[in-house]
């Protein structure tokens, strides 16, 4: 399995993670369901993780993979708190539509 580093250029992983990140941004922009928004944020975090792991493997440097580990830790905590906020929001507004949360506008 080690020969993927010799066979594929790192630009493949760079472009793949840029594409996944852009799809995540697109999802955050066009959807209004707060759960889907969270999922698109997870997608963006994962694309960044993929880029970290690719560079870490191509350079033979362990620091990148540990950084990914810490990103996963923070993402897990973020999802736990975020979904609690989401359940609270559903309890108050009976909806998970983020465009209802515009009280700061007025």
């Amino acid at each position: 399995m080690t020969d993927v580093i010799r066979q594929i250029d790192i630009s493949y992983y760079v472009y793949l993670s840029i594409l996944l990140f852009s799809i995540g941004v697109l999802g955050v922009l066009i959807r209004r369901n707060a759960i889907i928004l969270f999922m698109c944020i997870e997608l963006m975090l994962n694309s960044v993780n993929l880029l970290f792991v690719a560079f870490s493997s191509y350079r033979g440097d362990a620091n990148g993979q540990l950084f990914v580990f810490f990103i996963m830790v923070v993402a897990a905590a973020e999802v736990a708190v975020g979904l609690a906020i989401l359940v609270m929001m559903y309890r108050n507004t009976k909806s998970v539509d983020v465009s209802l949360l515009d009280k700061l506008k007025n």
């Binding site: 399995m1 080690t2 580093i5 993780n49 792991v53 870490s56 993979q65 990914v68």
Partner: peptide, 14 residues
Amino acid sequence: QYVLLNAQFLFIVQ
């Protein structure tokens, strides 16, 4: 992809 990049620990964690 993590398996292909030889990152077995992150594969399991993922």
